[in-house]
């Protein structure tokens, strides 16, 4: 379900942010699939249902219903990028 990945160009510090575009909107099932990468929070009290998945090396940010997620890889990350992309590819 992953069809585009772009590095976000910005005046940021020691980390990289990638934008992932998916072939369908993020739902609870997709969030559950990504939970292997870290702890999940869903903010249903916000005007739009924001979620994050965090560990020391990755921060996944998105809004349920959107087809885009923003993923930060922190210094020292290794397997997280491959794991996330493989996970997204497997989801149909």
């Amino acid at each position: 379900m992953l069809y585009d990945v772009k590095l976000k160009d910005d005046c940021i510090g020691k980390y990289k942010i990638y934008i992932y575009r998916l072939t369908r909107p993020v739902d609870r099932g997709i969030i559950n699939s990504m939970e292997v990468l870290g702890d999940t929070e869903v903010f249903t009290n916000f005007p739009k249902p924001y979620f994050n998945i965090k560990s020391d090396y990755i921060l996944i940010k998105g809004v349920i219903g959107n087809e885009r997620i923003d993923v930060t890889y922190y210094e020292g990350y290794s397997k997280e990028k491959v794991l996330l992309e493989n996970t997204l590819e497997k989801i149909t």
Binding site: F46, P47, K48, Y50, K61, V63, D70
Partner: peptide, 8 residues
Amino acid sequence: SYILLNVF
């Protein structure tokens, strides 16, 4: 920053 932009 992401929340400010994408949620608010």
